[in-house]
Design a protein around this nucleic acid. Structure first.
Lengths: 212, 212
DNA sequence: ACCCGGCTCATCCCATGGTATGGGGTGATG
DNA sequence: CATCACCCCATACCATGGGATGAGCCGGGT
């Protein structure tokens, strides 16, 4: 039988990292009440060790944690390439702390006590941001994967073609015959699944291949 | 005779908006001491009415101002399209205030008293950011200006060409002869100063002309 | 009335792009 | 050794791009 407030399917996940168990439990039920999955962790370490499902979500993080500071942890996550949007909470914070958190890209920084609604708003923004991030990352990974199937020559040719050079010029630059360039160019188009040259140019742009 | 700490040429400008005159004067001399120009204003209104030289710079803004709040003023500047990076200062601030300021894009939010060096660091970041912003805006305006010289037909053709359609298909879409398409295409290339099709595609990208 | 710019089209000609067919060489790998 | 991926090239053929020349139609401004 379906849940009254549907959950557990592919609904977003809120990860709560807070060593204050009662508070974590309260947050958990708050999020569940609006149909979000939650996971709670007593420490940064616990969060890192847990395996996270491949779903959009966000991280609600207390600044005061056992071991590392929440702010340091935030920076650490960044270096590790975990792009999960972060919402920071604190009981005893000051302005420099909040500024540092926001500079590091936090979605919000909430001083306790805060209204439930403020947190829910922040979470909803964070999740939306994560959705966009994941979508961008995915299409980027797709593109990157295709690009990696190109042979070295094909990449060179692609770069020059995308820079606007004619086959003839590419041939001269790479000391090849024009016919060979045409062939590499064709394979590159096929492998990149680019129907037209403008498509290829845009792909090169997304891949940050320098224009010229 | 040149100044000891070179200024007044095309050096960046720090705009200080603060109704505390002694403090403004102190900031003024602080910034001049490192070779920056400064302008001080007693109110948001005074800043808006002043004519600002066309130079990179930033805005140092006290949150508590006569009339509007600094935060509201910040939002107002945004709506007016004044992209000058903002640094907020406050004597009596709290976390929500700083978070709001940072969310609105402030470079930094400093609680008084702060160290001179913190402000100088923020200013230097802000000016660098403004430089980048201005450069981007300028090249964008250039492009936009060229785009505006295109006739309506030329724009239609350009859009379809950039979307990867062949002249033939463009002709069919617009119910034109292929020859006419070629001509519009040629003019578009010339007017946009695009040497090659990839160039045109990138320009269209910067102009945010939808790809297909 | 005239000119000019935008829009349209045709025919001709040539450069360029793109693919197919067929050939040969290398080096890594099973 | 056989195979495969990558690299190189030629000839041929056709589609496409792009410019020159010449032309007609409109509407707005001098």
């Amino acid at each position: 039988m379906p849940n009254p407030v549907s959950a557990s399917a592919d609904t977003p996940i809120v990860h709560v990292v807070d060593d204050d168990a009662p508070l974590a439990a309260a947050l958990d039920s708050l999020f569940r009440s609006i149909g979000l999955q939650t996971r709670t962790y007593g420490s940064a370490q616990a969060f890192l060790e847990a395996k996270k499902p491949d779903l959009p979500g966000c991280l609600v993080l207390d600044v005061r944690l056992p071991g590392v500071s929440g702010l340091d942890f935030q920076a650490q996550l960044d270096e590790m390439g975990i792009g999960l949007p972060v919402i920071l909470m604190t009981g005893h914070g000051d302005i420099p702390m909040s500024v540092r958190g926001m500079k590091a890209g936090a979605v919000d920084f909430l001083a306790k006590p805060f209204r439930d609604q403020d947190l829910l708003d922040a979470v909803s923004i964070a999740i939306e941001r994560d959705r966009a991030r994941r979508a961008a990352a995915e299409s980027d990974a797709d593109l990157q994967a295709r690009y990696e199937t190109l042979s070295p020559r094909e990449r060179q040719v692609m770069a020059l073609v995308v820079a606007g050079k004619m086959n003839k010029q590419v041939a001269w630059d790479l000391e090849l015959s024009e016919i060979t360039v045409k062939i590499h160019r064709g394979s590159a188009m096929r492998k990149m699944k680019a129907r037209t040259l403008p498509d290829l140019v845009r792909m090169a742009g997304s891949l940050k291949i320098p224009a010229q």
